[in-house]
């Protein structure tokens, strides 16, 4: 049995027995359902809250089902990413700091297998959570609003999946490089927010960027997408993910001697 499969099995057991495989999807499903449900019941919610002057009429345009699904990713951009960061910030740094990694590092360990097994398991759980959340959002949007072209939905979800894998890669590389889980979380969260801020402020000046992936995901539903720019951006993200993986493996090996003995 290769070291990779042994370590992947260990990661699987960890994610199951620490309930990450349950609570992360629950977070994504809840926030996936919340958007169509809140939008559907918004008039009733505002009525029940009250506070409007006598005779005032509040016109709320009904969002399109596509807008609802794009808004779901808006929720995921902060809450979803935060859940992933909190779940995986200690993946490498935590093992090192607690000393549990010592009994792994003392063996003839392949650090590529060590880091990649963690990355693959975290990515699979993140993607499972994302797809369950988006499918729940799709179902409730269909139920409460209208249908969305399913092929477009699949392209939208697949494109956003690339973004989620990028975030997972950032969290794991930070966890491998930094001395503790708290610092890894701070750097990861700071990076995610900074990327969104940069693209929000000056993203209009470029059309090709790894930061544009959530925008491209939304574009599949809006029907406006430049395929050349899209594929170049996807290629760039793939390069960035590959670089993060190399950095993560390197940092895991470099920092192994800092494991608590």
């Amino acid at each position: 049995m290769s070291q990779f499969s042994v370590l992947l099995q260990k990661e699987w057991r960890e994610n199951v027995r620490n309930y990450k495989i349950f609570w992360i999807p629950v977070v994504f499903i809840l926030f996936g359902i919340m958007e169509p449900v809140i939008n559907y019941f918004l008039p009733q919610i505002l009525d029940s809250v009250g506070g409007l002057p006598e005779g005032a009429v509040l016109e709320i345009p009904t969002p399109t089902p596509e807008q609802i699904l794009v808004a779901v990713t808006g929720q995921y951009q902060f809450i979803g990413m935060l859940a992933l960061i909190l779940a995986y910030m200690g993946t490498v740094a935590g093992e090192r700091k607690s000393g549990t990694a010592t009994l792994l590092y003392v063996r003839p360990l392949s650090f590529s297998a060590y880091f990649l097994s963690k990355w693959l398991m975290a990515s699979l759980i993140a993607l499972l959570s994302l797809w369950l959340g988006l499918l729940a959002a799709y179902y409730y949007t269909l139920l409460l609003f209208d249908t969305v072209n399913f092929a477009d939905f699949l392209r939208f979800a697949a494109t956003y999946s690339v973004w989620v894998v990028l975030i997972v890669s950032i969290v794991l590389a930070a966890s491998a490089a930094l001395p503790n889980a708290g610092m890894a979380a701070a750097v990861s969260l700071g990076s995610v927010l900074l990327m969104q801020l940069v693209d929000g402020l000056i993203g209009a000046y470029w059309s090709v960027s790894p930061l544009k992936i959530p925008v491209y995901a939304a574009s599949w539903l809006n029907g406006r997408i430049d395929l050349v720019d899209f594929w170049i951006s996807i290629g760039l993200v793939a390069v960035v993910i590959a670089l993060l993986l190399i950095a993560g493996i390197w940092a895991s090996r470099l920092n192994a001697s800092k494991a608590k003995v």
Partner: peptide, 25 residues
Amino acid sequence: FLPQHPRFFPWLTALEFTEMAAKLS
């Protein structure tokens, strides 16, 4: 190698941990 205070993954059983150690070795 046995460290002074060996620390284990608390969610693994003794057999699972020892098997993992054997495989990795």
